[in-house]
Structures are given as structure tokens and as C-alpha cells.
Amino acid sequence: MDPILYTILLCVIVFGISLGAAAYMTWGERKLAAVLQDRVGPSRAGPFGLLQPIADGIKMIFKEEMIPTHSNRWLFVLGPCFFMLTACMTSVVIPWGSGLTINDTFYRMQVTDINIGLLYLLGVVSIGVYGIMIGGWASNNKYSLLGALRASSQMISYEVAMGLSLIALVMTTGTLQLGEIVRQQDGGFANVVYQPLGFLIFLICAFAETNRAPFDLPETESELVGGFHTEYSSMKLGFFLFAEYINMFISSAVMATLYFGGYNFPFQHELGLEGNALAIVQSLVFMLKISGFIFLFMWIRWTLPRFRYDQLMNLGWKILLPLALANIFITGLVMFFSGKLG
């Protein structure tokens, strides 16, 4: 198959998977929330309420579309589009599997394995805040603006710690290429063994970056109505909500890739599986790891109350940032004394 055509096809597949996963995460979230609170949850649309995401989507599309008169119309529409775009963009560098060989042709399961994958990831994540910022500002509403401001400052603050925690990882792996990071974890221990503190920092930052509880301050319903999406309705609101789930899916995938061995699983070569069969099992294991992280995201959301804003900033700047720096320092020392350096 033509490489460009294949890349496009792969993009479409990855896009479809992330959208489908996000759709069913909304169902999963509601179901899990219900179960954790001893309720039933969605159970009417289809068996176990499995058609609920479709019903929700249809509802969103058929809702009345409202654009406030005094809003900046163009930016108002741009906001959710941008948020959605950046949410979907990150998935291209994630290795979803080791690759299939059909008719002597190798089909990779990663859209692109650029050698600065990690940098690309951080870059796209940091422009993700623009969607919220533009949307909140264009709404011309004080609650939206406050929500947008909170979102931006929160994401910028936590990006620092996030980036620093990744630097320690880059020091141990010596590469920014995600495919390479995953291949390094084949056989040996997963990176979380070498970088437990780094993983913890990354995990906390991932919660903050995706605006999930306990860091969901941008949309604090109780004080800011709906935060940056107060003025949004119909599918534009749907985009904001949906993109949050895509973000969650992608950051789960990133955590699984960087710290939990990606598609590798222990004793994978002793199973007697070869080639394509192994690759498929690996992809399934990867999906399982992602589901585990998504479960963690939701589990924490329905356990912890929201941080206060000053606590959030304290945690980000006064605790996570020094911890991340200490982590880099310790990693450096260990590497120096174990002779792994240069």
C-alpha cells in the first residue's frame, strides 16, 4: 500500500478509536460514578445503557445553538474547534502496537515515530490551553473568563512540573522518540520502576492538565456556573466535554507508554506467540493498560473533593516543581555513580 495512503488510513483509524473510546468513556464515567455511589447509572438505552453515548450525542446535536450577541462570534466558534483539534493531535505519536506484517509488508501501528515525539507531545498539550482560553474569553462573560483564566494558569503551572518530570525520564531513556522508549522497556523493567517519583508527578500533572477532578477548577459548577463553557450550547459544548474525554484517553495512553511499558507486557516472548498474533495481543494489553488508567482517573474523580485555588497553585509551584527538580538531581546522581552517564 502507498505509504501516504496508509498513513492517512492509520490516522482515520486512530481518530476513530480515540473518538469511540471517548464516547464510551462518558458511559463508563456515568456508570462508574453510579456504582461508586450505590446507584444504577445509565441502564435504559440498550443493554446496560450501552447506547447512552449515542443518545447523548444525538441530544447534543439537536440542542438549540446559541451564540451570545456580545461575544466575539468567530473566536467563540474557534474555541471548541481548537480544543478538539489539539485533543486529537496528540494521538499520532503514540505507538498503539508493534506492527503487523501482512503479505511481507510491514504495517506499523504508530502514525509517525518522529524522533522528537515527547517534545511534540508537550508542545501540543501546551497549545491545548488556547482552546479553553479563546472560548472563555470570546464568551464575554465573567464566569467564562474566570474559568478560562483558571484553566490557563493551572495548565501553565502544571506543565512546568510535567516537563521537568519528563526530563528525568528522558535522562534515563536517552531518547525523545516514543517508539524507542517503548522498545527499551521490552524485556527489562518498565520505566515506572526507575522513575516512581517522576511517574507520580506526571500522574498528578496529567490530572491537572486534563482539568479532571480534583483539579477541575476551570469548570467549578458551584462557583463559576460552568466555567469556560458557561455560554456554550449544543455541539460546541459537546466538543468541550468530549475533548476532555479524548484528553483523558490520550494522557492515559501516554502514561502507559512512557512509564508502564507501552504495548509490552511481562513474559511476552515466553508465550509462544509470534509475529502478528503477538502484535495483536500486545495492542490489546496496551488498551487494557489505558483502561486501567482511565479507571484511575474516574475513580479519583468520584473520591476526592476539589482543591481550593490557592492549594492548587501551592501544590503546583511549591511542591511538585521542587520535587521534579529533586527527581532530576537524584536521577542524575544515580546515573553518574552507576556509570550510566555518557
Binding site: 461508586l36 450505590d38 444504577v40
Partner: peptide
């Protein structure tokens, strides 16, 4: 404390829902 809280919520996964459909 967070882990403790998470264990409490996790234990609710196995509780029967009192809902009457």
C-alpha cells in the same frame, strides 16, 4: 489519606444497589 479514601470508594463497587427499577 487519598489512598484510604480511594479504598472506601472502591469497596462500594461491590455493594448492592438499593434501587428499585
Amino acid at each position: 489519606a487519598i489512598l484510604q479514601g480511594m479504598l472506601i470508594t472502591f469497596s462500594h463497587l461491590f455493594k448492592r444497589t438499593p434501587t428499585i427499577k
